[in-house]
């Protein structure tokens, strides 16, 4: 090391040291990301192309066979259809009702904190525990709901969770109840960000009815919030699992079989981890596609401002 080299080294050492420190600081997060997220995902992707079964000593590379099987698998087709129906019911209902509740609370003068808490309660409660309460509420013979229906003269109230006609509907109702409060809180935040003067201005400009003011001011200005709420609700409802696992186990006769439950059952009941991983990939693709579509399609129509 020569004396002449020293000053140069000193000047360049600072940025290198800084970069190194930066790297060191991000290292824990980087390692966590790698170990907890990236590696398991890669492992799942790899497994999807094998016939691995839990407990079997060896596995074979079978290429696209798992995906080919999926195309002819009646259970998978039903699960996909049920998931679409579930998402198609829960998303619009929980968004519409969430927005409605937010508007009512925003417009109300008394008990705002109370109603906010009431609607938000389902979000903070544990789904599995709440499922037990729902099982009782919807019990065909001793449940309060059917007792009420009999009181008002319905002679044969539905069997809710055990009939293939109503099971998906019942689960969807629970799903709406679950995400309504969450959406409401997001909308409340969005509403409070709308400047009051805009309403006054709209009224001056001739928007007399409340509906006009909603159409011309509230709805457009809620755009960014709505985009976020739609995306998050879609993803949350595609992920439906706990209520199915606790209440119906996919029955009767696959009437409440949904994507994640099929994945769980293939992997952990039938022990076919390879096939289960393939379903996971399909699920991942659906979620990513949803996010992408939402942002692409709606980004252009949103007013940020």
């Amino acid at each position: 090391m020569s004396d002449a080299a020293l000053p140069r080294a000193a000047t360049s050492r600072a940025p290198v040291g800084e970069a190194l420190a930066g790297l060191m600081l991000t290292l824990p997060a980087g390692i966590a990301y790698l170990v907890l997220l990236l590696l398991p995902t890669l492992a799942a992707v790899t497994l999807a192309f094998t016939d691995y079964e839990l407990g079997m000593p060896a596995l074979n590379w079978i290429g696209l066979d798992n995906f080919r099987e999926m195309l002819s698998d009646r259970g998978f087709a039903i699960a996909l259809r049920n998931t679409v129906i579930y998402v198609g019911t829960v998303t619009p209902l929980s968004i519409g009702l969430g927005l409605g509740a937010a508007l009512l609370i925003e417009a109300g003068t008394r008990g705002r904190a109370f109603f906010r808490a009431v609607f938000f309660l389902p979000v903070v409660s544990l789904t599995v525990a709440m499922a037990a309460a729902w099982q009782y509420l919807l019990h065909p013979t001793i449940g309060p709901l059917n007792a009420l229906l009999r009181q008002v003269g319905v002679t044969d109230p539905p069997f809710w969770l055990s009939s293939s006609d109503t099971v998906l509907l019942s689960l969807a109702a629970i799903g709406v109840w679950e995400s309504l409060g969450y959406n409401m809180v997001l909308f409340l935040a969005g509403l409070s960000a709308i400047p009051r003067e805009l309403y006054a201005a709209a009224e001056v400009d001739g928007a007399r009815s409340a509906f006009d003011r909603f159409r011309l001011v509230t709805w457009p200005l809620l755009g960014p919030t709505t985009l976020f709420v739609v995306t998050i609700t879609l993803i949350r409802s595609v992920r439906v699992f706990d209520t199915v696992a606790v209440l119906t186990q996919g029955g009767p006769n696959k009437a409440s079989e949904v994507l994640l439950y099929t994945m769980y059952r293939e992997g952990f009941t039938y022990l076919r981890l390879g096939y289960s991983a393939a379903i996971t990939l399909v699920f991942l693709a659906i979620v990513l596609a949803l996010v992408w579509l939402q942002t692409k399609a709606m980004d252009r129509k949103i007013h940020y401002g």
Partner: peptide
């Protein structure tokens, strides 16, 4: 009745 196993057990326990 078309009940799940758990629901049937509850109904029996409740005397229904």
């Amino acid at each position: 009745p078309n009940l799940t196993s758990a629901a049937a057990q509850q109904a029996f326990g409740a005397g229904k």
